[in-house]
Design a protein around this nucleic acid. Structure first.
Lengths: 343, 343
DNA sequence: TCAAGGTTCTAATACAAATTAGATTTGCTG
DNA sequence: CAGCAAATCTAATTTGTATTAGAACCTTGA
């Protein structure tokens, strides 16, 4: 259907075989002893015809196309602001630019409602790309395992218990970050610390909670109080009970809870950080809605995206075991909401 | 390398030929008279082996690869907030989902500083996709012309004088929108209207200005005053001169100028809209930084992106002339900043 | 009983590139 | 001048699927 030039067209124009064209275009002139003059003819013909290799043919044969797939189980450009993936995508794009790769967004897999299943309807389009970066927080461990079993090269962003052993992944080092943070809070003199979590069990949050509890045990036995709140529990009564119990510092998993807590404290005349230290455990976007410079951890989403691209290219070159993974360090924003506990 | 089952594996298991498997899996049993019993055997075998069709093979055979290229002359996921392309990309993604196409972002073309040339190293990398959507406001008419000359199927988002005749494009109907808006302002009783432009000459802004001047002429001769301000010109003196000159309404090209003008008016005790009506000519994102419900036009960026995808697919099916184009209607947000002029 | 027609399946091929295993020519050595 | 190697190229095959053309068998009617 297309007037797209093929290698055979080049061959005809240059008066050689398709084999010679393929070898020449792939830079194997030396090892196959192709005449310099022939090479020039072929290159000239290719330029003249505006030849560009056919992705599907090359992929079918197992070659590389310079295409990196990106698959999220949810759309990448969501209508709601505060896309979770946005910063990661910036990192992916930047590294793709540096590495000279193009990106394929697998939108076609989202056709039906709900999370986009990789193997649904038998339309696993991932193979059009050389490899893929997969992100998403839904439970799709079985699909990932199957993909790994098929030998398809991919890197996962995040971490899953089951998946960990099967594929390379990049994630943030929540464990170290929360652990360090707890030591800092301990050094400030706090002995009762509460934790406000989100009622779900995705890995990044589980890791933070786990690390929090470990730190509580490690630092000084039984002096710390762990509390997991559900949405809606954050009311004046809750705050009162918290303070009456002797809690002097609060770890807040989700950024969206910070301002809620600020409002609650303001309403009850509780000063932050004089009466209560508050520390966030996630990145905070600059926005006029942010009331103060919170003390908080930052998740290295941009580096994670960038590293995932590099890692995938290394995987494609066979440089890593499938069990290889990396944990990138979280950042720390000192802010003004962590202080000594009241005397 | 593949532990992946192929049609031939199914065929072996079911004791039939690969052809029969292909026909059955594609639901062509009826037209090729395939026995119901055979069909059951094949389906069972396919299920048992966990068969998933190989997209690359299928695409190779079919001529199309289901990839739609997206090329902006700047990166699509910019570090700065307020990406111009973001809303368009949402539209593109949504329609790609509906149409079952994947998207290719040509990041590899951005390797060098500056805007990314399509004909990087003499090769048109866009050709790896079935077609492309091109967006960008830099001057690259020559590249677009060359692309069109090569017969590569693409749709441009926006409009260029030169490009208009060469390729299909989708754009917003600024002309009608501004014209209608001017009539509305005129009906409110305004007779002197000023225009605050941005000091550049990209098409969408030129069209708004042009339509503004046309409307001034059409509605009532010489009763309207047109002013084009550069950045930095917007100071108290400018506002004073404007009002002294009898201007009662202001058209503001760029959303970023609206709050600036609001501050200026607040400082000078000028009430909006009692003393001065102010109307924006672009979309406004919900954000806490927006001080009031401005009366303004909205640019249908999301529909533009979506329509571009549809249009490209139609072009690929040969349904359109290259000179085909569409202008999508702008929206109007009534807001509260347009009123009758002071008596 | 033989041609016509239907039913049910298969062989062969195309898609575009990569690769393996030669084929052909030329040059050089003994 | 036989013989061997290097230089330079090509034929044939592979990848997995879809499709065309037709084969083989069976039924039916005259």
């Amino acid at each position: 259907m297309t007037g797209r030039p093929r290698q055979s067209d080049i061959a005809k124009l240059a008066g050689v075989s398709q084999t010679t064209v393929s070898l020449t275009l792939n830079g194997k002139t030396a090892e196959h002893g192709i005449n310099n003059e022939t090479e020039q003819k072929i290159m000239a013909a290719a330029r003249q015809l505006g030849y560009v290799p056919n992705v599907t043919a090359r992929a079918l044969r197992g070659g590389r196309n310079g295409l990196i797939g990106v698959h999220a189980f949810e759309p990448l450009f969501p209508t709601s602001k505060e896309s979770y993936y946005e910063e990661i995508m910036i990192g992916i794009e930047q590294q793709a630019i540096r590495s000279g790769q193009d990106l394929v967004l697998f939108t076609s897999m989202h056709q039906d409602e709900g999370p986009a299943s990789i193997f649904h309807e038998g339309r696993n389009r991932l193979r059009i790309a050389d490899g893929a970066i997969i992100l998403g927080f839904d439970e799709h461990d079985d699909e990932l395992a199957r993909l790994a079993a098929e030998g398809f090269p991919f890197v996962f962003i995040g971490r899953r218990e089951k998946a960990a052993a099967l594929m390379p992944y990049v994630t943030a080092d929540y464990v170290t970050a929360v652990s360090d943070l707890m030591r800092l809070i301990h050094r400030h003199g706090h002995r009762r610390v509460a934790y406000i979590g989100v009622p779900d069990n995705v890995m990044p949050r589980l890791e933070r909670r786990h690390s929090f509890r470990m730190a509580c045990t490690d630092l000084d036995l039984t002096i710390v109080d762990s509390t997991l709140a559900n949405y809606g529990e954050l009311d004046p009564g809750w705050l009162e009970r918290l303070l009456d119990g002797g809690t002097t510092a609060l770890l807040v998993e989700s950024t969206s809870h910070l301002e809620e807590i600020a409002a609650l404290c303001a309403g009850a005349g509780v000063e932050i950080p004089d009466r209560l230290s508050v520390v966030g455990l996630d990145s905070i976007n600059n926005s006029p809605a942010i009331s103060r410079r919170w003390t908080h951890l930052t998740v290295p989403r941009l580096p994670i995206g960038a590293r995932a691209v590099e890692l995938l290219l290394e995987v494609l070159d066979g440089q890593h075991e499938l069990t290889y993974h990396e944990r990138l360090p979280c950042g720390f924003e000192p802010g003004v909401t962590l202080a000594r506990p009241p005397a």
